[in-house]
């Protein structure tokens, strides 16, 4: 957790600001309520009773991008949808992260054709890619935990720049 109790001095913990903030951020990464295609159904399964995303502090999906920290691009991004995805990303307030869920969002998947953007990273920066068509809920949770690792490694110096 990054928080270490100081021995012999009850009730006081010491930590660095970086670690405390990153710890708080990993515990409440609110995702944007946003689904595109098949992966959104698996994302819903991950949210629901069996897999229970609230264990990671993510049960609260925000429908407004202004209140969301994490965008899970779940599904194929088509050329008609691309501007919308970009606009949603732009509307999210910092700090913000993106998980590209599934093959279609990561690289176009099986659709190498006129209609599908060949990977959502052509339009927005992606932090974690999750493979699968669609990925199992376990795979998505692994992606989320990978993102947590990334968040824990962030430095204050980088935020300032």
């Amino acid at each position: 957790m990054g928080v270490t109790p100081k021995l012999g001095n009850l009730g006081v913990v010491t930590s660095t600001l970086e670690e405390a903030i990153n710890w708080a951020r990993t515990g409440a990464t609110w995702p944007l309520l946003f689904g595109l295609a098949c992966c959104a159904i698996e994302y819903m399964s991950t949210q629901a009773s069996n897999y229970d995303l609230s264990r990671f502090g993510m049960e609260l999906n925000r429908a407004s991008p202004r209140q969301a920290d994490l965008m899970i691009v779940a599904g194929r991004v088509t050329r008609k949808m691309a501007p919308v995805v970009r606009q949603l990303y732009d509307q999210m307030s910092d700090p913000k992260w993106v998980i590209s869920m599934g093959d279609c969002a990561s690289c176009g998947g099986v659709y190498n054709n006129y209609a599908v953007v060949q990977g959502v990273d052509e339009i927005i920066p992606v932090d974690v890619y999750v493979a699968g068509c669609p990925p199992r809920p376990e795979q998505l949770m692994h992606g989320i935990l990978t993102l947590h690792e990334k968040i824990r490694g962030e430095r204050i110096a980088d935020w300032a720049s």
Partner: peptide
């Protein structure tokens, strides 16, 4: 049209058995 994926067009370039995989992803429920 926000989810237009071109599945019908893609099937034209696949042999019959391979195209079954694409049909899965139309009505994904």
């Amino acid at each position: 049209g926000f989810l237009h994926t071109g599945i019908e067009k893609n099937i034209e370039s696949k042999s019959y058995e391979k195209a079954v995989t694409l049909t899965d992803r139309m009505d994904y429920l």
